[in-house]
């Protein structure tokens, strides 16, 4: 089956619908699927629920879909870098579900692994625990968190082969492997598509079974907090 598509727009063909849920890889602006985000904006899809650790900045990353009011709800752990996000949230235009970062990562991992829920200590005694099942194990209290599956996942990897095997680079890996497993359909964008067999088989982070479509794209890789020491 052909998985390689020529553009992000082609790769999204037939997959988007209003009200859908989308998992988006990345941490801040690091390792985000820049091209697929832009193409998603072009589709005009509305009322989407986005599961993503952050929501980009005002003019880059997922912030671009806030500008166009395409997002109905965000499931995130931290959205502090985005003024438009704050404005839409405080005015009630945007729904927000905060998840502790580790809980969010595990919810995606669990969803992708066929695990509908898991117990964690994270958030016990806080507003995160309200309305959730509490259970004691070995004298400690835990809460039940649900696995997440999404209609679509868009992820960014460093290299991928024509079958969709992916390898990530440094901390640009972050949430991408979890998102790739949680999507009913997963689209990957990579810096370079390489022939099958040329990736190190022992260094493939996301095996091809999780990836349905793959594109190669250019990446701006904007840096949020450029921090240097004296040389």
């Amino acid at each position: 089956m052909k998985k390689v598509y020529t553009s992000a727009t082609d790769a999204l063909e037939g997959l988007v619908f209003d009200g859908m849920t989308i998992a988006v890889g990345g941490f801040g602006l690091c390792g985000i699927p820049e091209n697929l985000i832009l193409a998603l904006r072009e589709t005009g899809v509305k009322d989407i629920t986005v599961v993503s650790n952050n929501c980009g900045v005002d003019d880059f990353g997922m912030g671009l879909l806030l500008q166009t009011r395409q997002i109905k709800k965000m499931v995130s752990s931290y959205v502090g870098e985005n003024a438009e996000f704050m404005r839409q949230y405080l005015s009630g235009e945007l729904e927000l579900e905060f998840n502790p970062q580790g809980t969010l990562a595990e919810r995606l991992r669990a969803g992708g692994a066929g695990i509908p829920g898991f117990y964690t200590k994270t958030g016990v005694g806080t507003i995160i625990a309200e309305g959730k099942e509490h259970k004691e194990f070995d004298g400690e209290t835990y809460i039940l968190e649900r696995g997440i599956k999404t209609d679509l996942a868009i992820v960014k990897a460093w290299k991928g082969d024509e079958k969709g095997n992916l390898t990530y680079r440094k901390t640009a890996m972050n949430f991408n492997p979890e998102c790739a497993t949680a999507g009913k359909v997963t689209l990957a964008e990579v810096e370079e598509i390489v022939p099958v067999g040329s990736l190190d088989k022992m260094a493939i982070h996301t095996p091809e079974v999780y990836v349905q479509r793959i594109i190669q794209g250019d990446h701006e890789k904007r840096i949020e907090q450029r921090t240097v020491r004296a040389s």
């Binding site: 690091c30 890789k221 840096i223 949020e224 020491r229 040389s231």
Partner: peptide, 21 residues
């Protein structure tokens, strides 16, 4: 590791505060 020098900044290498490292 420590913060990079200007020459070895890598956009794929940040800490949880989104600073280059």
């Amino acid at each position: 590791g420590p913060f990079p020098t200007e020459e070895n900044i890598d956009a794929d290498l940040i800490n949880a505060g989104k600073q280059t490292i």
